[in-house]
């Protein structure tokens, strides 16, 4: 333990740089994934076909092993290649499902009476979305973002396999040289980062939930997550 801490202190600059790279990978991919998954999730609440195809595709993407995914991405122009871009694309693809689910189930679970009232009051579809459905779905959307970001912190370590840097670099180097200090220097900060991200977004989520407190006891979020 002590030797390991000394090792960390000795490598603190490198550690800091890899940590920042790691945060960059997670932040970039989660933001891009949110920008894609938000409209997809909304669309899924409007169309049965979008729901089946969108969530189905995201589900399949989720099961592709990351090395295989990098193999597909390598030859792609613009998106792929060696380095951060392929890693970010892969992370974005992995993050789509949890975010889409959060958006979809958040909107699907808005009290039908509230939705009916919004129609009956004469709100346009856009006003219903922005003033009623999205604000009420916000805690669930944040829940999805939180899951996506925490998964991304873990998955981003594999980015080192395609030259994207991040804490995975310590892990890969440690594995290549059977150096436990190096492996732990990557794995432990990654785990701590996951906890930090989870705590941060969790705090934000409960803040939002307090602000937009539902009238009834909070609906169970997971139930209709992949509902028909």
């Amino acid at each position: 333990m002590r030797a390991w801490l000394q090792f960390l202190i000795f490598h603190r600059r490198e550690l800091l740089q890899l940590l920042l790279e790691h945060i960059g990978l997670v932040a970039a991919s989660t933001l891009i994934a949110a920008a894609i998954a938000l409209p997809l999730g909304i669309w899924a609440t409007r169309s049965r076909a979008a729901r089946r195809w969108g969530i189905g595709t995201a589900n399949i993407v989720q099961t592709i092993p990351s090395l295989a995914m990098f193999g597909f991405l390598l030859p792609l122009p613009l998106l792929g290649g060696v380095g951060a871009s392929s890693a970010i694309v892969a992370l974005v693809l992995y993050s789509l499902l949890p975010i889409m689910r959060g958006v979809y189930s958040g909107i699907a679970q808005v009290d039908p009476a509230v939705k009916e009232a919004a129609v009956a009051l004469g709100l346009t579809a856009r006003q219903r979305l922005w003033q009623v459905e999205l604000p009420l779905a916000l805690p669930s959307i944040f829940g999805g973002l939180r899951v996506a970001a925490v998964i991304a912190v873990g998955t981003a370590t594999i980015g080192a396999a395609i030259g994207a840097g991040g804490l995975g670099e310590f892990i890969f180097r440690g594995l290549a040289t059977a150096d436990n200090n190096l492996i732990l220097a990557g794995a432990v900060p990654a785990a701590l980062l996951a906890l930090a991200v989870d705590g941060l977004l969790g705090g934000l989520e409960s803040m939002l939930a307090r602000r937009y407190r539902p009238a009834a006891p909070p609906p169970a979020l997971a139930e209709t997550a992949s509902g028909a």
Partner: peptide
């Protein structure tokens, strides 16, 4: 040099990325 997974270096070479 790009540092990456050994198996992927072959693919990157074939894909003309390195």
């Amino acid at each position: 040099p790009h540092v990456m997974d050994l198996a992927l270096t072959y693919m990157a070479l074939a894909a003309r990325r390195v």
